[in-house]
Simulated scan of single mutants.
Amino acid sequence: MDDVVVMNAVSKVYGKGRSAVAALREVTTGVPRGRFTAVMGPSGSGKSTFLHCAAGLDTPTSGTVRLGDTELSGMNETRLTELRRRKVGFVFQAFNLVPSLTVEQNITLPLRLSRTRVDRGWLKEIVTRVGLAERVGHRPAQLSGGQQQRVAIARALVTRPEVVFGDEPTGALDTMTAREVLALLRETVDGMGQTVVMVTHDPVAASYADTVLFLADGRIADAMDAPTSDKVAARMTRLGAWNR
Score class of each variant (00 low, 15 high):
Val88Leu: 11
Glu104Gly: 12
Ser100His: 12
Leu83Pro: 02
Asn76Arg: 02
Gly89Thr: 04
Ser100Asn: 14
Gln105Lys: 15
Ser100Glu: 14
Lys87Asn: 14
Thr108Gln: 08
Gly89Glu: 01
Glu77Ser: 14
Glu82Asn: 12
Arg86Pro: 13
Pro99Ile: 03
Arg79Glu: 11
Val103Lys: 02
Arg112Gln: 14
Arg112Asp: 06
Thr102Arg: 03
Gly89Pro: 06
Phe95Ile: 08
Asn76Lys: 08
Leu101Trp: 07
Arg79Lys: 12
Arg85Ala: 15
Ile107Ala: 01
Ser100Cys: 11
Leu80Arg: 01
Arg85Trp: 03
Leu109Ser: 05
Val88Pro: 06
Pro110Ser: 02
Asn76Glu: 04
Gln93Ser: 04
Arg112Ile: 09
Ala94Met: 12
Gln93His: 08
Glu82Ser: 14
Pro110Cys: 09
Gln105Gly: 09
Lys87Trp: 05
Phe92Lys: 08
Asn96Met: 14
Arg112Glu: 06
Lys87Cys: 09
Thr78Tyr: 13
Ala94His: 15
Leu83Thr: 03
Arg84Ile: 07
Asn76Met: 08
Gln105Cys: 11
Glu77Arg: 08
Phe92Tyr: 09
Glu82Cys: 07
Val98Leu: 14
Phe92His: 09
Leu111His: 00
Thr108Leu: 13
Leu80Ile: 03
Arg79Phe: 00
Phe90Glu: 03
Phe90Ser: 10
Leu97His: 11
Val98Met: 14
Leu109Gly: 04
Thr81Gln: 07
Phe95Tyr: 15
Lys87Phe: 10
Asn96Leu: 14
Thr81Tyr: 07
Leu109Phe: 07
Val103Tyr: 00
Ala94Gly: 11
Arg79Leu: 05
Leu83Asn: 08
Val103Ser: 01
Thr78Met: 13
Leu83Ala: 06
Arg85Lys: 07
Phe95Ala: 13
Pro99Met: 11
Leu111Ala: 00
Ala94Pro: 00
Thr78Asp: 15
